[in-house]
Amino acid sequence: MGDFTDQDLSGTRFERVDLSNTRFERVHLEHVEIISSEMYDMTITGTDLIGVRMHGVDIIDLDIKGYVGKLTVNGVDVAPMIEAELDRRHPGRAKMRPTEPAGYREAWELLEELWDGTVDRARRLDPALLHESVDGEWSFIETLRHLTFATDSWVSRAIEGDPSPWHPLGLPWDEMEDTPGVPRDREARPSLDEVLEIRRDRQARVRRLLDQLTPEQLASETDPVDATGWPPPRSFPVDECLRTVLNEEWEHRLYAERDLAILEERRA
């Protein structure tokens, strides 16, 4: 079995080749053609698909979970339909797209209320199950740790200017490259109460920021942070930073609710 690491294979031609059980990680695929080929039982995770054109294909049992900006199927852009259906299924989702300070405060209040219910649901499980992964996804504890990382990155660092705000238990997303100074302790097993203490502090920080947020601040850009880390040391629109936090909180709660339901079935 071949192992190609840190190699430039651009321009390579694969014809009548069996690539079954192959793993591609941090691979750059640009201007690639796939012709008369079979793709069965594939899993694509943490990958950007931009400008992809699929013509003359049979698509059967395709499951997509992620942000869909534009998806044209047989000449029809279905992305707006998907957004409308998700808003219908999840009342409150539309509030995660605010345009003025009061809307951000309302969205955050709703998120705190929803997360309180999710945490109450998690407390009814055996604490050991809160460290258990479902289908390879983050455990409940890891999800809360990631939200700490998101707040530290987009609020404390990007907006407030702290060059190194990360809590040791914060958890970046899996595909992020190791970065000096940014914690990534996947072996840590803090209790629910430990991570909730950190989380309450981060929630209060966001709340204070939003309570003082003005239209002028919302329309402004952040000052670049002179230090390596995440997000990159450059300027960002404040509303983009805050939208990122809202989106992280909203989506990861849905993932948590999905996985808690499975864990409840296992307990039963």
Rank of each mutant, 00 (worst) to 15 (best):
G2K: 12
G2F: 12
L9V: 12
S10D: 05
S10W: 13
S10Y: 10
S10F: 15
G11V: 07
R13N: 05
V17N: 13
D18M: 06
L19W: 11
S20K: 13
R23N: 08
F24W: 15
H28C: 08
V32Y: 03
V32L: 15
E33K: 14
I35Q: 14
I35A: 13
S36P: 01
Y40E: 10
D41I: 11
D41H: 14
T45C: 10
T45F: 03
G46W: 03
L49C: 08
I50M: 11
R53V: 08
R53S: 14
R53G: 04
M54Q: 08
D63M: 14
D63L: 10
K65Y: 06
L71Q: 02
T72D: 04
V76S: 03
V78E: 00
M81Q: 15
M81F: 14
I82A: 13
E85Q: 10
E85C: 03
R89C: 01
G92P: 07
R97W: 13
P98Y: 11
P101G: 07
P101L: 07
A102K: 15
G103L: 04
Y104K: 02
E106R: 08
A107M: 02
W108F: 04
W108V: 00
E109F: 08
E109N: 11
L110M: 15
E112D: 01
D116V: 06
G117S: 05
V119S: 01
R121I: 03
R124D: 04
R124V: 09
L125V: 11
L125A: 06
D126R: 00
P127S: 10
L129F: 07
H131V: 00
E132D: 13
E132T: 09
S133P: 05
G136M: 10
G136T: 06
E137R: 12
F140K: 03
I141K: 04
I141H: 03
L144A: 08
L144T: 00
L144K: 02
H146L: 06
T148S: 13
F149Q: 11
T151G: 01
W154D: 02
V155M: 11
A158R: 11
A158C: 12
I159C: 02
I159A: 02
G161R: 09
P163I: 04
P163E: 06
H167R: 12
L169M: 14
L169Y: 01
G170H: 01
P172W: 00
D174I: 10
M176V: 14
E177K: 13
E177D: 12
D178F: 10
T179A: 06
T179I: 13
G181F: 12
D185A: 09
R186M: 07
R186P: 04
A188K: 03
A188H: 02
R189H: 11
S191E: 09
D193R: 03
E197M: 08
I198H: 09
R199I: 07
R199V: 07
R200A: 14
D201P: 00
R202H: 11
Q203A: 11
A204L: 12
R205G: 06
R208M: 14
R208S: 15
D211G: 06
A219G: 14
A219S: 15
S220F: 02
E221W: 07
P224L: 05
P224I: 02
W230C: 04
W230Y: 08
P231G: 00
P232I: 09
F236I: 01
P237V: 01
V238C: 12
V245I: 09
L246E: 04
H252W: 14
Y255C: 07
Y255D: 12
E257R: 00
E257V: 10
D259N: 06
A261H: 08
I262R: 01
L263R: 00
R267H: 02
A268I: 05
